[in-house]
Each structure stands twice: as C-alpha cells, then as structure tokens.
C-alpha cells in the first residue's frame, strides 16, 4: 500500500515536472498550444462568472427561502377586554387551517422586546393598548391566504394577516432555477473545454504522425508517446485556466461591493469562503485536458500502424 502510494506520487511528480528530454522529442506545437492556452483562459474567465452567478443566486434563494419559512404574522387589534377571547379564537381557527404548521401568541416579554427599539426597555406593555401578535409558521406547502383572511374576518374581526414575505415565493423559485442553470453552464463550459482540447490534441497528433512513426521505430511505447502530448496539453490548459480564473476573480474583486439592501447585481461577487470556490477551476481544466488528450492520443496511436 505504502509502496503503491510512493509510486503514485512519483508518477504524478514525473508527470508534472516531466523530464526535459522527453518533452523535446515532440516538436513544439506552437499555434495549437497557444490556442489551447487562450481558450482555456477564456473558459476559466467564463467559469468564474458563472460560478459567482450560481453562488449569488443560491445565496438569494436561501435567504429569501429562509424568510419565507420563518413566518407570517397575525395582528389582532381589539379593545382590551375582547383581546384574549379573539386571540383564543384566532389560535383555534389557525390550528384547523391546512398549511399552518404552528401558531403561537407572543408573550408580553416578546412584545416588550419588539417595542424596545422604539420606546426603550421599560415599556409598560400591560397598560398600553397594543395589538396581540400571533406568529404563524407555515408548512412547506403554505396556506391559502385569501381563504384564511375570509374566515378571520368572519370569526376574529380585529385580525389582520400580514404575509408580506409570501410574494417572494416565485422569486425564490426563479433564483433556485438560476442556480441550477449556473451549474449546467459550468458543466457545459467544462464539456466545451474538453471538446476543444480534444480537437487541438487530434490536430497536434495528426501533424506529428511522422514524429510518432520515428518514436515507434526506436522503441517508444504508446504510453510514452501519449504522455508527451498529454503532459503538454494538460499543462497548457491548467496554466491558461489559471490565468483566466485570476483575471475573472480580479474583475469580481473590483466590482462594487454588496450593499446592506443589496440588490442581486451588487451581490454578484464571492463572499467569504466562497472565494475558494474558483480555485478549483484550473485543476478541473487540467483534469479535463488530461482525460481528453489521453483519449485522443490513445485513439490515434491505436489507429496508426
């Protein structure tokens, strides 16, 4: 096991460092190589923005979703002597309403905490004619607010249903969908990168058919020949994607930062640990290049006599 691991490390190290001689047996592939690097850079750049978009819509969906799940509020304003009765009636009614997970009347202390920012900590809640608040937690399906309003107006005349967060439901759906689209785009970018590198590798292999023939004559194994190409394209794609990613991250860094009331656009950058996410782009590009070039090389070498 240990030996195997050492062998693997050696293999990986040899692959990355290469040996100067082995790299020189295949002539420089100039134009193809530059094109590969440039395309990988462009794809890296795009991937950064797509990733940022995906993460931002994810954040939005989560935040709005959480607010949705939190609650809506029922406010009962009634003369003090009727307030307890109406509260009890409202709670009973809510208990039998489909889509309401739980309903709870706020205590005096909670009322005081809510009012504290305006009137200070020593509000005499019990002597003020303030409305009673009932916190409603919805099930994921949600309740029918028009129906609930109708029943409340019949049975609890002082009740006002405040469900201001509910209008965001379609927005959350949109944000979630946007996040999914972002991931699909990232997948597409990876696929296109793979396709492009496959084409470039095929071109390079075809251009070097004569070189490959000579290498065969002197006893080069297929794996050796394939590696010479694979290493080249993997490094090019990795370096290109690294540059593109760096530029993309820089561009996001100088984007105006998110305000507290942050709209979607100003919140497009990465936040906190999310800045680590784009760092996986270059290795992924390198992996994609590794596998597509290897497949292309194996296929070509099998077909060359």
């Amino acid at each position: 096991m240990k030996i195997k691991r050492i062998q693997l490390t050696t293999t990986v190290r040899n692959f990355i460092l290469g040996d100067a001689q082995a790299d020189r047996v295949v002539p420089p592939t100039g134009f193809t190589a530059q094109l590969t690097m440039f395309s990988a850079a462009a794809m890296g750049f795009l991937a950064v923005f797509t990733l940022a978009m995906s993460l931002a819509s994810g954040r939005l969906a989560d935040r709005w979703g959480a607010e949705l799940a939190r609650s809506s509020t029922l406010r009962i304003s009634a003369p003090p002597d009727q307030l307890p009765a109406q509260t009890t009636a409202a709670l009973r009614l809510l208990e039998t309403t489909p889509g309401v997970a739980s309903a709870r009347a706020l205590s005096e202390d909670e009322h005081r905490a809510l009012l504290a920012p305006w009137f200070g900590p020593d509000v005499p809640v019990d002597t003020l004619p303030i409305p009673q608040l009932i916190e409603i937690i919805e099930t994921s399906a949600g309740y029918d607010s028009a129906g609930l309003r109708l029943r409340l107006s019949a049975e609890v005349p002082g009740a006002v249903l405040d469900d201001h967060t509910r209008w965001r439901r379609p927005l959350v759906r949109a944000a979630t969908r946007l996040r999914t689209l972002g991931w699909v785009s990232i997948l597409l970018i990876a696929t296109v990168t793979g396709a492009m590198i496959t084409l470039a590798a095929h071109a390079a292999l075809a251009a070097n058919a004569q070189v490959i023939a000579v290498l065969r004559l002197v006893g080069a194994r297929d794996a050796y020949i394939a590696n010479a190409f694979v290493r080249r394209f993997t490094l090019r794609a990795g370096i290109g994607a690294f540059i593109g990613t760096a530029v993309g991250m820089l561009a996001l860094l100088i984007l105006p930062s998110a305000q507290a009331d942050g709209g979607f656009l100003t919140g497009l950058g990465f936040q906190g640990a999310h800045w680590l996410w784009p760092l996986i782009i270059p290795p992924i590009a390198a992996l994609v290049a590794f596998f597509s070039t290897r497949a292309a090389a194996r296929k070509t070498l099998r077909n060359l006599v």
Partner: peptide, 15 residues
C-alpha cells in the same frame, strides 16, 4: 527538430 546527438540518443530517451 533534434540535434544529431539527441537523435542518436533517442532510443535511450524513450526508454
């Protein structure tokens, strides 16, 4: 693209 010496050494290189 390789020098004479590198061409002569090619078998060594690839092995």
């Amino acid at each position: 693209h390789l020098t004479l010496a590198d061409n002569v050494a090619l078998s060594l290189t690839v092995s």
